[in-house]
């Protein structure tokens, strides 16, 4: 059992490292993710910065930017495999679970890097003062994991179609609606200064969503990937 586990970990890390190396050399996803987020935040702050926005609106703006940035970049993990005709040899070489988890962790890291850039920018541009940092970071972390897991499995589905970009947003939206709604709510609670336990329901929901989504993705992925 430990050997099988370490074998799994080695292969997931191998896929993850390949994605990092590949992204570092091609900037296939990163540039579009960051550019989209920075441009949107800047335009939004110029357009609505003069108005006194409520905490709910500010929280919603952060997650809207993160959602659409994800749509513009995270799907590339599977789309590029199909477009560059590397998917077949990968299918023969690795088990579907290794591929899915390797690519999921890569998307997650990409999203975290995006947040390292965009969240401080958001806090400055919209003059947001986070009062409960532990809740804010917990919601940001869990919301990102939910976003990455859903986008990764949907990306695998749409990579085999002709309308990749459009379909990704259409299919992801209903699945991500609960995550976005709860993350916005959790962020608002963190910004308004309520204690951590006030947002505990949101944290529990996000955690449950991730468990369900990752389990369903792992069960579905082989069918999606091998079809």
């Amino acid at each position: 059992m430990p050997n099988r586990f370490s074998d799994w970990v080695t292969k997931i890390i191998t896929v993850f490292k390949k994605e990092i190396k590949s992204e570092f050399r091609t900037r296939y996803a990163f540039n579009s993710l960051v550019m989209f987020a920075v441009v949107t935040l800047t335009v939004l702050s110029l357009a609505v910065g003069q108005f006194a926005l409520t905490d709910s609106v500010k929280s919603a703006l952060l997650w809207v930017v993160l959602f659409f940035s994800s749509m513009s970049g995270l799907a590339q993990v599977f789309i590029k495999e199909e477009e560059r005709k590397t998917a077949s040899i990968l299918k023969l070489s690795a088990l579907p679970y290794h591929i899915f988890l390797g690519k999921f962790f890569f998307n997650l890291i990409l999203l975290f890097i995006l947040e390292i850039i965009t969240v401080p920018l958001f806090l400055i541009l919209f003059e947001v003062r986070v009062q409960t940092w532990d809740l804010f970071l917990a919601v940001l972390f869990l919301g990102s994991v939910g976003l990455a897991s859903t986008t990764t499995i949907i990306a695998a589905i749409v990579s085999k179609t002709d309308l990749k970009g459009t379909l990704l947003t259409i299919l992801s939206f209903p699945l991500l609606l609960p995550v976005l709604g709860i993350s916005i709510q959790g962020t608002k609670v963190a910004v308004t200064g309520a204690p951590f336990y006030s947002g505990f329901a949101e944290v529990k929901f996000l955690f449950s969503y991730i468990v369900v989504m990752l389990t369903a993705s792992l069960l579905l992925f082989e069918t999606v990937w091998m079809e």
């Binding site: 190396k21 050399r25 005709k85 590397t86």
Partner: peptide, 19 residues
């Protein structure tokens, strides 16, 4: 069936052999 163009030949070999 193509290999990864952004990786070197050795990196491609290493990737597929480990998997």
């Amino acid at each position: 069936l193509e290999l990864y163009e952004e990786l070197t030949a050795l990196e491609n070999l290493e990737f597929f052999t480990v998997l």
